[in-house]
Design a protein around this nucleic acid. Structure first.
Lengths: 204, 204
DNA sequence: CGACTCGTATGATGATCATCATGCGAAATT
DNA sequence: AATTTCGCATGATGATCATCATACGAGTCG
């Protein structure tokens, strides 16, 4: 590994860090190359020595953010499957996470953008989502994962992303906090139903 | 009502329709004024006779889309509260809705954009979300709405928006369909738990 | 019918931004 | 040590786009 190539790799890493933050903070299109390169400590023109395209950087930044995120995510021990899901929801659906999207979950930060992105980015989105589903499922014992657990993981991620998306969009702090709380406690009910109310029409 | 003013109001309505479609399809920033006005059958310069700003149009289009959407949404009879929630989820989380975001739910289409939008837009987002929560809760008998129902409505909307967001971002059709199915059937379980697996560690 | 009002059309203007051509200087190679 | 390589900086170029100034022409009102 020559000194030149490792300097370049360090620069690339800085660009990826800055890109991941900008993309999550400002959106796939909102992030300008000049601003990202400035944050990486380089000038704008150099960008094309590292990436072919803005789309290239967007995808790489997205994957970078999620790979980093999952590492911190999967840490921690759980008593039970349900307990694991509840813990993940508790750690995900926090006001702190809501208020710092530039360092948070890229699915929640870029979900709507992905829908409008070209097919190549959406392929990356799907692959990363699969990896995250697997990461949620990964039990200590590491047997084959039953499909019903995968379904639970999908449900967890959907609820987390949806709750975070709504909580972030809302201006009213009280409503935003309430959304987070409702979603957290729904996943925390170890044996109870999804919904808090009973089944009859006139429950209080 | 003079002929002039009703012509202008018609034009404004066309702009709002086009704006609502473009904003949901291309995002808050992705939608260009020229394209919207072209779709409304007018030229770009005329825009400023109807709206002060692009942000002004964005907010108005967002509200327009949701007001229209709720009307179609609230229709239909339900046997029970749980049944109502299940029905709404079943109608929301469809492949058709996923594949036509320009005429679908504005929360799912613009959730990530709202987080980056100025405070004024996020206030609108919060107000509209409150209205949608109320619309979900509105029972035929129209008594005072218990707070636990509001929580259920928040949960429903979070799961719907999150599931739709992920389903739209994913390139892989099979995974996308599965996300929709999992979220639908979670809300359909009238009495069962949120999660499909049992509570012990070694369930299959 | 004539004057004026106002909704719309046309055509700038200026800003932002992705992309690329060119050049420099330090590191690598012989 | 001379030459080549290559990572980075600088400065265009061209495209896109919001915004606005100006002009036209049909509707309105005296």
């Amino acid at each position: 590994m020559t000194k030149r190539s490792e300097q370049k790799q360090e620069a690339r890493a800085r660009i990826l860090d800055a890109g991941a933050a900008h993309v999550r903070g400002d959106g796939l299109d909102g992030a300008g190359i000049a601003a990202i390169m400035r944050d990486a400590g380089l000038t704008h023109g150099t960008f094309y020595a590292h990436f072919t395209d803005k789309a290239d950087l967007a995808e790489a930044s997205f994957r970078h953010a999620l790979t980093r995120g999952r590492a911190a995510w999967t840490r921690g021990e759980d008593q039970s499957w349900r307990g694991r899901l509840a813990r993940l929801a508790r750690r995900y659906l926090t006001p702190k996470h809501r208020d710092h999207r530039e360092e948070g979950c890229a699915f929640a930060a870029l979900g709507a953008d992905a829908a409008r992105a070209p097919a190549e980015f959406r392929r990356a989105f799907g692959e990363e989502l699969q990896r995250s589903i697997d990461a949620v499922c990964a039990a200590p014992e590491d047997g084959p994962v039953p499909e019903r657990r995968r379904d639970d993981a999908i449900l967890l991620l959907s609820l987390c992303v949806g709750g975070m998306t709504l909580a972030r969009g809302v201006g009213d702090r009280a409503l935003s906090d309430r959304i987070l709380r409702v979603c957290r406690s729904a996943m925390a009910r170890e044996t109870g139903p999804l919904l808090s109310s009973g089944g009859n029409d006139n429950d209080q």
